[in-house]
């Protein structure tokens, strides 16, 4: 086992799959010589050659279209979109083409493409780089959307995503890239897509969350424990499809839930989680299910982001409302 940051775990997963399967191709803007702007592909071109790991001209829609075409040729493309804020440039390739590949060919074609991209905020990027656009992706049938909350999950989930036969949007929170290290096995391992993880067990309240908000939720849970509340924290890991079974069995135990996302209230995944809970477990509930989210504005300018982003104190506040309801 080695201590790795999330970015190192991602590089390790890419290396593992480049070794395992000669059809895996890694490409994007500056992923070659430069190793990616976040260094996620550091050293991979040197190790696997320009045939397998290569730079593209600067065009997100081109990268997406290339992935569609390469998958028609039997490859397993793992393109990088440099920042997920640029995803609008490649929306047709993702939602209009990749997501429909199996359906519109009656299952004849399929697209085992994993699009990796940094997303989220809190690292003072220029405008339009930071955002939480997983909700946009999750609303597109045909896609799976995976969001690791740390180094260990990142490696296992990325390997599973690459091996998946359908298109996966793999979103890497920028703030998690280097913020902490975890034990990550050097050998290969997979983590199933569509399965949540109970990060911490508890009996009074379920906090359902994903991505960078997992750490904030664990912090909040610690605060709440000090005041005598037993809190369960669930990391969705995959936000589309969501693991309804794990969520519902938790809520049936705790009878109270809040859903936490970094995305704006009108965006993200939380509304879907709340809907599943009310449809399936309303009789177990002793309080409304509240959401902790960012407000409904455009992702703010860098100097304003820290007051805008949801944090542990907001989670504690919502949790208390639900616990005291």
């Amino acid at each position: 086992m080695a201590q790795m940051t999330m970015i190192q775990a991602i590089t390790d997963a890419l290396r593992t799959e480049l070794k395992n399967d000669e059809n895996v191709l890694v490409f994007g803007e500056d992923v070659g010589v430069n190793g990616g702007v976040f260094r996620a592909t550091e050293g991979l071109q040197k190790e696997f050659g320009e045939d397998r790991v290569f730079d593209t001209p600067l065009a997100e829609s081109g990268i997406g279209g290339l992935a569609v075409g390469l998958s028609l040729q039997g490859f397993r493309p793992v393109p990088e979109i440099q920042f997920f804020g640029f995803v609008y440039e490649v929306m047709d390739s993702i939602s209009g083409q990749l997501a429909r590949m199996s359906f519109r060919s009656a299952g004849h074609f399929h697209a085992p493409v994993t699009i990796r991209s940094p997303f989220g905020g809190g690292v003072a990027t220029p405008e339009m780089h930071a955002d939480s656009l997983e909700g946009l992706m999750a609303q597109q049938p045909g896609l799976k959307v995976v969001i690791p909350s740390g180094p260990y999950d990142a490696k296992g989930l990325l390997i599973s995503s690459i091996r998946d036969e359908d298109p996966v949007i793999f979103l890497e929170h920028m703030k998690l890239y280097r913020s902490f290290r975890e034990e990550v096995p050097e050998e290969e391992y997979t983590i199933p897509l569509g399965k949540a993880e109970v990060k911490k067990e508890g009996s009074d309240l379920s906090i359902i969350t994903y991505g960078a908000m997992v750490r904030e939720s664990l912090k909040a849970a610690e605060e709440l424990e000090k005041e005598g509340h037993s809190v369960e924290v669930i990391d969705l890991r995959t936000v589309q499809p969501i693991d309804v079974e794990t969520i519902i069995s938790s809520v049936e135990k705790t009878n109270r839930a809040i859903v936490v996302q970094e995305a704006q209230r009108q965006a993200g995944i939380a509304a879907n989680v709340v809907a599943e809970i009310t449809e399936r477990a309303i009789l177990s509930l002793e309080a409304p299910v509240l959401r902790v989210t960012a407000p409904d504005t455009i992702y703010p300018y860098a100097q304003g982001e820290n007051t805008w982003l949801p944090a542990a104190k907001d989670i504690v506040e919502a949790a208390k409302k639900v616990l005291e309801f």
Binding site: R265, Q266, P295, D296, T297, I298, P300, Y301, Q303, G304, T307, W308
Partner: peptide, 23 residues
């Protein structure tokens, strides 16, 4: 210092939608 209320205020030129008003 920028406030979240500043951001909400500059979201729309026309009438403020209900969700923004509430927030």
């Amino acid at each position: 210092k920028q406030k979240v209320s500043d951001f909400l205020n500059i979201m729309y030129r026309g009438e403020m939608p209900q969700n923004v008003k509430e927030q």
